[in-house]
Nucleic acid binder design. Sequence first.
RNA 1: GUGAUUGUAGCUCAGUUGGUUAGAGCGCCUGAUUGUGGUUCAGGAGGCCGCGGGUUCGAAUCCCGUCUUUCACCCCA
Length: 413
Amino acid sequence: MASNEFQPLQGMSDIQAPEIYLWRMMEERARAVFTSYGYDELRTPVLEKLSVFQRSLGDTTDVVKKEMYSFKPSKHELAMRPEGTAGTMRHLAGRGEEGLSARVFYIAPMFRYERPQAGRKRQFHQVGVEATGEPNPLADAETIAMQKSLLDAWGLTGSKIQISTRGEPSDRKPVADGLRAALQPHLNDLCADCQRRIDENVLRVIDCKNEGCQTIVDQIPSAIEFMSEASRTYLDQVIQTLETMGVEVTVNPKLIRGLDYYVHTVWEISHSALGAQDALAGGGRYEIALGRKAIPGVGFAIGFERAIMALEACGISGEQFAPVNGVWLVSLGETALVENMKLAAELRAKGIRCGMELETKSMKAQMRKANRSGATKVIIRGDDEIEKGTAIVKNMVEGSQEELNFEEVIRNA
RNA sequence: GUGAUUGUAGCUCAGUUGGUUAGAGCGCCUGAUUGUGGUUCAGGAGGCCGCGGGUUCGAAUCCCGUCUUUCACCCCA
């Protein structure tokens, strides 16, 4: 790192081997799990009209207000997506009737202009799903169960699912009023942030990290208690269904999700290995209005960078998924070198991972490279072998070797 | 946006109160039977000490700025 002129931008990073093998494993298994649940992959553009995000995430949220990369190259103000749901809804809204009962997933980079820290990048990556359809506790439960089975497929252990509800839109006012009234007597004991939040966004007082605020919050009724009977029943049904399915969740009425579009069930998955940003995934039921009518649905997103931190804490790393079992060709002399290039092409056409040195180097050097490549088999050819129509095949694990007919070598490879 | 923190070979890091050609380990290259790896031994290559400015006879070392790293707040995945 002699200079930073070749470094990526702040909060962005190049993902290279061996870590990339972990990414690939996660992507492959995510596709397999989602496909088994009947979901299809959807790839939306990175750039959307700014209004797509303003309308679906709510233009008062921090994500929209101050964290978006936005610019105006021509007529429309554009923005790079800070999350995946808005673009997906923009797409589904355009599919009319069909978009109201869709099951899609995405694996894509997201962009947020924030100060980077542990598990927080300016370009970060999410895998997420959206299932549109009228509110149904069973759909919420299935989504959470699917998310859990993805984490299992990755080998991630030690994560905790916390669940709560935001209730129906009609619950918002009673909840806010109720909390404000309950907090009013304690106003002077709240931290400066919370004194501001009590008017701007009361819900945020509830998950304030300040200890003093927390003791006050513990004394007052939870947000759920101000909600309608129907909203509470809905949450109970989700929890019961999950219980029947054997998915363990903890109810946490203090759980707050920031985006405006959430209704009913919300949840978060955290892991102790993550530091302050301990949420590796979040999800919830939402209602997003882009066209004339709102699209109801349920979905979640998992942060790759954070999931990887948690996986590494579980002892899972990229090296474990590096390609293995290759063949390495050793060539002694110009003739063998060219002949081996033909052989390599033939082996590769058969799907065999095959490497070789393209300049004439000592056998020792070539063997060293073979060893480093992780090849389990080495095929050695020099002038003698070419003339005889043979090749030496060496087993790198056992160290044994034998001279075989060239045709036989190809057949056994 | 706020408050801290980091930057020396490919990697992980030393570098004493500012003082001659900036070091180690690992890795890399070459060699130890001129056709055999992973162990060992010997040799070698490789650094504008993040970048710009300042102080000084002299700066990797002190000061200022800038970029970057990491962490917390905030917010969120």
